[in-house]
């Protein structure tokens, strides 16, 4: 899908030959990846080299298990969903650092260090926005966060709290983009400067795992945004009984995936639209702009809850 959106923005066709408009291109790519030979560069730390892709995959899969896809469709309905998400996010940084170091390649190491620094910094604002969501919804369980938004479209957290909800949503969008190392914050693998970033030396299945982790992270972050701000699997009711009846007939999973795909599409549009900032600009942006704004947001959110909540 990424390549289609990319091509669309750049007025190209994108992959067209396999299946209808290139729909099974992804399958072909995966098969190609799996058949490639797996080898490590000489001088690489073999154990770490093969361990890193495994570690990278931990976080997205655990988060995937926590997301409620429908009213009864959730793998693990744990009471501490949000702290768990924050906790496992640390593994991603670790995997990238190890992968970059063990490749024994200076481009990889540089990419890994950049990306590690970036992910650690943006994790703070990511966490703070999740904290804001926890504060307004009064629960850390993703299921009850979703159910707290029941009602019309105006009951979703993005609209329920005037202005603050939208601000929080935009901040979440920015920091999750950076957290996933996606463009415009992809200084970790900036092709023009670093060849390929931390996974320069990987090929075959391990590379596919890095790639997969990146895209699953895209899906889970979109799903998280959907759950926390866009009402999860609840239909977008508008308060008119006639329309709402029809909207309610559509199962929640469909709504959920529609919203998730909308979010993914937003991420992709952003990726192919904006230019990449420099490393120091990126860090300044996080520490001197996002973090103070987040703190203010938390404080005003608390004030809102105390006064009107």
């Amino acid at each position: 899908m990424e390549r289609k959106v990319c091509a669309h923005i750049q007025c190209r066709l994108g992959p067209m030959r396999l299946g209808w408009h290139g729909t099974i291109q992804t399958v072909a790519d995966v098969i190609k990846m799996l058949f490639k030979e797996v080898y490590a560069p000489s001088g690489a730390d073999k154990l770490m080299f093969y361990l890193a892709p495994l570690i990278v995959l931990i976080a997205p899969f655990i988060v995937c298990a926590l997301i409620p896809f429908g009213r009864n469709l959730v793998v693990a309905d744990v009471s501490m969903g949000i702290p768990l998400i924050i906790a496992v996010n640390g593994f991603g940084v670790l995997g990238i650092l190890l992968g970059g170091w063990s490749s024994n390649n200076k481009y990889s190491l540089l990419g890994a260090l950049r990306s590690g620094a970036q992910m650690i910094s943006y994790e703070i604002s990511f966490t703070m926005i999740l904290l804001f969501v926890v504060m307004i919804s009064g629960s850390t369980n993703l299921m009850s966060i979703t159910l707290g938004q029941e009602g019309t479209i105006l009951d979703w957290w993005i609209f329920k709290i005037p202005v603050l909800g939208i601000v929080a949503f935009i901040l979440f969008f920015i920091s999750s983009t950076a957290e996933m190392n996606r463009a415009p914050f992809d200084i970790a693998e900036a092709e023009q400067e670093l060849t390929g970033g931390y996974h320069t030396e990987y090929n075959g299945t391990p590379f596919a795992m890095f790639y997969l982790a990146e895209y699953i992270a895209l899906v889970t972050n979109s799903a998280l945004a959907t759950t926390c701000f866009l009402g999860g699997f609840l239909p977008p009711c508008i308060g008119v009984a006639f329309v709402d009846n029809y909207l309610n007939m559509v199962p929640g999973v469909v709504w959920f995936f529609a919203k998730v795909y909308f979010m993914i599409w937003c991420y992709m549009m952003v990726r192919w639209t904006f230019v990449r900032p420099r490393v120091d600009q990126l860090m300044d942006f996080e520490w001197k702009f996002l973090l103070p704004v987040n703190l203010v947001l938390l404080a005003t959110g608390a004030a809102y809850i105390v006064i009107w909540g």
Binding site: V78, S79, M80, P83, L84, I86, A87, V88, N89, G90, F91, V93, L94, L97, L98, W101, L109, A112, L113, G116, A117, I120, E123
Partner: peptide, 26 residues
């Protein structure tokens, strides 16, 4: 002790050890 477990992962794995790895790499 769920909360302590999560705090353990958050603080030690996500924080302390990452910084240790960072300093080692640097």
């Amino acid at each position: 002790a769920e909360f302590i477990a999560l705090a353990q992962v958050m603080v030690y794995v996500g924080g302390v050890v990452i910084f240790v790895v960072f300093t080692i790499l640097l």
